[in-house]
């Protein structure tokens, strides 16, 4: 009897121990059992419209009213890249802001940040800022320190110089905007949020900056359905000196420059606080929407800074 008892006891004890061990092992979340870490490479890419401008034409991606747009200088202050996992709440990121010269960008874009030793899972909440440049914002080669100082001095989030040409007529512009905005919940064009880090590998994360939103006929919400129009460049140049200044934009009434239809001015805010909606308000609002992800993926949660 005693033998059997101790036999049974030993067996039960052995089982208890093995079950404890077994219950505690295995990964708790939905990840693969092997775990592991990888790297994240964040690089900022300007859209084709910044490098090559916009062409007139009748295709959906062309400017419909005959204007050719080109940029000679394009500076942005971008940074505060951040990613978070919804399942555990872990977050990674880097708060620094960088000033980038998008016209001089290498073809593969600016490698802004490399994060190493990141858990090899999906980080589904990715976001970044196009921020008003402040002291501490650093340029990334080949952006010059002078460019960075210029942005910081004026507190701009984006500054560009370029020209619109139609039928021999040229209108030049040099505009800077303090339109700092945070972009969150970025998802690829297929709707997959964030990014997945491979174990022992590198994932490339590509915030993409568009260069044509000020020529849209609405403020984009979600999918971009728009005609590109630029006639307001001429309409707002009231003194007809072939140069369009910010002051002229502020005085340019949308009622005449951006007729509705075809324009839809929903979500344009009175950015300069003058009690009227001007083309400046329109362009400034558009300058808060041009941060995208992995090409044409959207970052729908935006907040002005």
């Amino acid at each position: 009897m005693m033998n059997r008892r101790s036999e049974g006891a030993a067996l039960v004890l052995m089982t208890l121990v093995s079950f404890t061990a077994v219950a505690a092992c295995g990964s708790k979340d939905g990840g693969s059992s092997t775990g592991g870490n990888g790297n994240v490479q964040i690089f900022v890419v300007p859209e084709d419209t910044i490098a090559n401008g916009l062409q007139p034409g009748t295709e959906l991606e062309n400017v419909q009213d005959g204007w050719t747009i080109s940029y000679s200088r394009y500076l942005v202050a971008v940074g505060n890249f951040r990613a978070r996992r919804s399942d555990t709440g872990d977050s990674i990121g880097d708060p620094s802001i960088h000033v980038l010269d998008l016209k001089a960008a290498p073809t593969s874009g600016y490698v802004v940040k490399e994060l190493t030793n990141v858990a090899a899972v999906r980080w589904d909440k990715f976001g970044y800022d196009i921020a008003n440049a402040k002291a501490g914002a650093t340029p990334l080669a080949p952006t010059t320190q002078a460019d960075a100082d210029f942005m910081i001095q004026n507190g701009y989030s984006v500054y560009y110089e370029g020209a619109g040409v139609k039928a021999g007529k040229t209108i030049t512009f040099k505009w800077g905007f303090a339109a700092g905005t945070s972009f969150d919940d970025c998802a690829s064009p297929d709707g997959v949020p964030g990014f997945a880090v491979p174990a022992g590998g590198t994932v490339q994360v590509k915030p993409t900056l568009h260069g044509d939103h000020q020529y849209f006929d609405n403020i984009t919400q979600g999918v971009e359905i728009t005609k590109r129009l630029a006639q307001w460049l001429e309409t707002c140049d009231k003194d007809a000196n072939a140069e369009l200044t910010i002051e002229e934009l502020k005085k340019c009434d949308v009622v005449t420059a951006l007729p509705q239809p075809p324009y839809d001015l929903t979500a344009v805010k009175d950015q300069d606080g003058d009690g009227k909606i001007s083309v400046f308000d329109y362009v400034n609002t558009q300058m808060r929407t041009f941060g995208d992800y992995q090409g044409d993926g959207e970052c729908p949660t935006r907040a002005s800074q």
């Binding site: 949308v254 009622v255 509705q260 001015l265 344009v268 009175d270 009690g275 009227k276 909606i277």
Partner: peptide, 14 residues
Amino acid sequence: SAEHGAILVGIKNL
């Protein structure tokens, strides 16, 4: 008309 556009701005934005 242009004035109609102004009213739309009033309704949507101002």
